[in-house]
Computed example of a mutant assay.
Amino acid sequence: MARVSQAHLDARRRQILDGAALCFARNGFHATSMQDVLKEADLSAGAVYRYFAGKEDLIAAIVGEVLGEVREAFEEAAKQSPPQPPDLLVGSVLSRTLAARASLTVDGEPAFPRLIVQVWAETLRSPELAITLRDGYAAVAEAWVRVVEAYQAAGMMRADLPPEHVARTMIAAVQGFVAQQPLLGPAPVEVLQNGLRALMSMSAPRDEA
Score class of each variant (00 low, 15 high):
1 M>H: 13
4 V>T: 15
5 S>R: 13
6 Q>D: 15
8 H>D: 06
8 H>Y: 11
10 D>C: 01
11 A>V: 08
13 R>V: 02
18 D>G: 13
18 D>T: 02
23 C>V: 04
25 A>L: 04
28 G>T: 01
34 M>N: 07
35 Q>G: 13
35 Q>Y: 01
37 V>C: 00
42 D>W: 06
47 A>G: 08
53 A>G: 15
55 K>E: 00
56 E>C: 00
58 L>G: 03
60 A>I: 06
61 A>C: 04
64 G>E: 14
65 E>L: 08
65 E>I: 02
66 V>Q: 10
68 G>H: 12
70 V>H: 05
74 F>W: 02
76 E>K: 03
80 Q>F: 07
82 P>T: 11
86 P>R: 07
89 L>E: 11
92 S>C: 09
93 V>W: 07
97 T>L: 09
97 T>V: 15
98 L>R: 09
101 R>Q: 14
106 V>R: 06
108 G>I: 11
110 P>E: 02
111 A>M: 10
112 F>W: 08
115 L>K: 01
115 L>G: 09
116 I>A: 09
117 V>I: 05
118 Q>A: 14
124 L>H: 06
129 L>T: 07
130 A>S: 11
132 T>I: 10
133 L>K: 06
135 D>I: 01
135 D>H: 03
138 A>R: 11
146 R>N: 12
153 A>Y: 01
161 L>K: 11
164 E>D: 09
164 E>A: 14
165 H>F: 09
166 V>C: 08
169 T>K: 03
170 M>F: 13
178 V>L: 15
180 Q>V: 01
181 Q>F: 03
181 Q>D: 12
184 L>P: 01
185 G>A: 09
186 P>S: 07
187 A>F: 02
190 E>H: 03
191 V>K: 01
193 Q>G: 09
196 L>N: 10
196 L>P: 13
200 M>L: 13
202 M>G: 08
203 S>H: 14
